[in-house]
């Protein structure tokens, strides 16, 4: 079953524009791997970028730039024979997240942060937003935590009950500093998710805030 809770327009557009931080982009890209619906929206967002590029006023080029580029054109990268991927349902963590973690679930080394809660911090140099894997034992109430900024959660395994919603594999929850909630892991199995928390200055340019009132985020 594919995801039911999707990326907001704001996240998708800033990912496409290239203005989203790396940690949040990691979550967006991992959701996209699991969600054909949002991949289609992502293509549309890229098309907006393409149209905007086309509409930019052309800048004047230095003389000789074309010759300089032509001189750099060598052979092209040969596309390898198209690999037909063998789909496997036993891999829990899709790319690009798996590479950031260095392996699938079995290879992970968890650290206990609270009773029944474990985590793995993902180190992203130069990124103010923080990404981490969280594992809640089934039925665990997520510990109270402050929302000083935006928090993104992508469920990868198990379920997370958040207010009226039940989030399952591939689903995204997006909360801000106004959100008060106490989600809990479903009773069936441990809930494993990727969580990204905002750094205070991340939306300095405020593209997100610009869109918020009418995109209804």
């Amino acid at each position: 079953m594919s995801a039911q809770y999707h990326l907001s327009d704001e996240l998708l557009l800033s990912y496409s524009a290239g203005t989203l931080d790396e940690a949040s982009s990691l979550l967006v890209a991992t959701h996209l791997a699991l969600c054909p619906h949002c991949r289609s929206r992502n293509l549309a967002a890229d098309a907006v970028g393409g149209e905007l590029l086309d509409a930019l006023p052309p800048a004047e080029l230095s003389p000789g730039l074309m010759d300089s580029v032509l001189a750099q054109l060598g052979g092209r990268d040969q596309a390898g024979a198209a690999k037909v991927a063998v789909r496997r349902s036993d891999i829990v963590i899709p790319e690009p997240l798996r590479s950031y973690l260095g392996g699938d679930l079995g290879a992970l080394r968890w650290t206990r942060v609270a009773p029944r809660v474990q985590q793995i911090a993902i180190d992203i140099p130069g990124c103010r937003a923080r990404a981490r894997m969280l594992r809640f034992q089934c039925g665990t109430q997520v510990p109270a935590h402050g929302h000083s900024g935006r928090e993104l959660t992508l469920v990868l395994s198990g379920t997370l009950h958040d207010r009226d919603a039940v989030l399952a594999r591939g689903d995204v929850a997006e909360t801000d500093e106004h959100t008060e909630h106490q989600p809990f892991a479903g009773p069936e199995q441990d809930c494993i998710c990727l969580a990204v928390t905002d750094a205070p200055l991340r939306f300095k340019g405020a593209f997100a805030r610009l869109l918020q009132p009418w995109f209804g985020i």
């Binding site: 890209a29 991992t30 690999k83 950031y100």
Partner: peptide, 27 residues
């Protein structure tokens, strides 16, 4: 251009999905 600008101006990576990943859910 966008990927290059992230690389050159922000010195960050731009994570993207891999359609050849066995865990990828195809269209």
């Amino acid at each position: 251009a966008r990927n290059l600008s992230i690389d050159r101006f922000r010195q960050a990576r731009r994570p993207s999905f891999d359609p050849n990943d066995p865990a990828f859910i195809p269209d």
